[in-house]
Computed example of a mutant assay.
Amino acid sequence: MLATVHHPASAPDGSVPLLIVHGLFGSARNWGAIARRLADRRDVVAVDMRNHGESPRAGVQDYPSMAGDLAEVIESLGGKVDLLGHSMGGKAAMQLALTQGALIRRLIVADIAPVVYTHDQSPHIHAMRGLDLTGLTSRGEADRRLQALVGDPALRAFFLQSLDLKAAGGPVWRLNLDVLERDMPKIIGWPGTEGHFDGPTLFLTGAESHYVRPEHRETIRALFPHARFAKLPGAGHWLHAEKPREFEETVRVFLNA
């Protein structure tokens, strides 16, 4: 089963748990602050997706498989959750909603649509592979070395959260880069899943992001007939990191509606 990080409710009110699903190259740890704040009235559980973090390494990274992993976690939590997924995690969440919708009460899809994209993320894999891990003992030094390959400091910081500096035998990436690179067309693609999810669904996007376009809405509404749309001003694709409090409050309002 996927590795999980549990955040028990500080004052439980009987709400179903919230399951948080990260995007490509991410981990449960990326969501720690938001998960803790949302755990005031309900348990919040964040997962490491397959081939990420502490979760098992698998030979395939496609959405039916990722949805199956999430279903297994949900069954272990009692069989019903509110589900929040960002980017790749949002596509996995949509796949699960369309195929096993009874497991989900409310669905939040963060800055992604059920469509095929063309933004290949393989260059980031090449950059991570290109990082010289010899003798690395600090994240600061790792950042300095990675700067030659990744100019954006925020992106470097995000990637380096998946670098294990204390691994036996020396630093290693907590990512199965080989499988992620091979299956990149599946990750940026969409399996064309049919059906519909009748539960309340929020498509929450960054106002400065181009991942969810107006022309996607017809496709979204066909699959998620009760979809609502909201935008966070001043945020891009990484809306939860760029506007964490606004993201958290929007999620809270939707879940409690």
Rank of each mutant, 00 (worst) to 15 (best):
D164M: 11
V172T: 14
R228T: 12
F197R: 07
D143V: 02
M184Q: 13
Y211R: 09
R217E: 05
G189S: 10
G206M: 00
N176M: 12
L146F: 09
I188R: 12
P153C: 04
L160W: 06
D198S: 15
D120L: 04
P191G: 13
G169K: 12
E246Q: 15
G236F: 03
Y117R: 13
H196N: 14
G151T: 10
R245M: 14
P153T: 02
E181M: 09
L175F: 10
R156E: 03
G199H: 08
V150A: 11
E246Y: 04
E246P: 05
F159L: 15
A154P: 01
W190Y: 11
A207D: 08
Q121W: 09
R145T: 03
L149V: 05
P200N: 13
A235I: 03
W173P: 14
S209N: 10
R145H: 04
Y117N: 10
P214N: 02
L239D: 12
L165K: 10
T201I: 13
G236R: 07
K166C: 04
D132L: 09
G206R: 00
H237Y: 06
T137Y: 02
H119S: 08
D132Y: 05
H126N: 01
E246A: 15
A227E: 04
F224W: 05
G192K: 05
E181V: 06
K243H: 05
G169N: 12
L204P: 12
